[in-house]
Amino acid sequence: MLYQAIFIPDGETQPSRDILIEPNIQQSLKGWGRKGDTALIAIDASNNPIGAVWVRLFDENNSTYGYINSQTPLLGMALLPEYRGKGIGTALLGEMLRITKKAGFGAVSLSVDPNNPALTLYKRLGFKKIGVDGTSWNMIVEFNE
């Protein structure tokens, strides 16, 4: 799913899966299973994974795209192309935000290309742009008490 999370604009060539060894991308899931790592996986009727959303904490020594601070979980999300636009991403993201808030976190951050159609979903669920990192926007949603 990490590969599916990499936004490629229409008309551009899909990168090789070797992009997953790029340090900032690899850092997103390296050592998965640490305290605070949480994921949800959507499956189809045959139990095949079709999408996922995940959060994890980073610090200045092991940060990646979208990092805000060591108390704010960083979110990643992907759906297989044929399942996009069907409400699955909305359900996954909404549930992950509920879980993260219930766990006591005050916010969640993410990184998104401003041309990615998922930006509409993020804005609808309350994410706000707080900065730019390369060609991507850093966004955050803060939870109200």
Rank of each mutant, 00 (worst) to 15 (best):
Y3H: 13
Y3N: 14
Q4V: 00
Q4S: 08
F7N: 10
I8G: 05
I8S: 04
P9Q: 09
G11I: 12
G11R: 09
G11S: 12
T13W: 04
P15D: 10
P15C: 10
P15K: 12
S16I: 06
R17V: 10
R17M: 14
R17P: 05
I19Q: 09
I19F: 07
I19S: 08
I21Y: 04
I21H: 03
I21K: 09
E22I: 09
P23T: 08
N24Q: 14
Q26A: 15
Q26N: 13
S28R: 07
L29F: 13
L29G: 08
K30N: 13
K30E: 15
W32L: 11
W32S: 13
R34A: 13
R34K: 15
K35I: 11
K35R: 11
D37Y: 05
T38L: 12
A39I: 10
A39C: 14
L40D: 08
L40A: 08
I41E: 12
I41P: 05
A42H: 05
I43M: 12
D44L: 05
D44Y: 03
N47D: 15
N48R: 11
P49H: 02
P49Q: 03
I50E: 11
I50F: 07
V53C: 11
W54C: 15
V55F: 04
R56Y: 00
F58H: 13
D59L: 10
D59Y: 07
D59Q: 04
N61H: 06
N62G: 09
N62D: 14
N62Y: 03
T64V: 01
Y65M: 14
I68V: 15
Q71N: 09
T72C: 07
P73G: 03
M77N: 04
L79H: 08
L80I: 06
E82S: 14
E82V: 08
E82A: 15
Y83S: 02
Y83E: 03
R84Q: 15
R84W: 04
K86V: 00
G89M: 10
T90N: 06
A91S: 13
L93D: 02
E95C: 05
M96H: 02
L97R: 01
L97S: 01
R98H: 09
R98K: 14
R98C: 03
R98T: 12
R98W: 01
R98D: 12
I99A: 01
I99R: 11
I99M: 05
A103G: 07
G104L: 07
G106I: 01
G106Q: 12
V108F: 04
V108N: 09
S111V: 01
S111P: 03
S111C: 08
V112L: 06
P114A: 11
N116A: 08
A118V: 08
T120S: 07
T120G: 02
T120C: 01
L121W: 05
L121Y: 08
K123H: 10
R124W: 07
L125A: 00
L125N: 04
K128P: 03
K128E: 15
K129T: 14
I130V: 15
G131I: 07
G134F: 10
T135L: 10
S136P: 00
S136L: 00
S136F: 00
N138P: 00
N138W: 01
I140D: 04
I140P: 02
V141S: 07
F143R: 06
F143V: 05
F143N: 10
N144A: 09
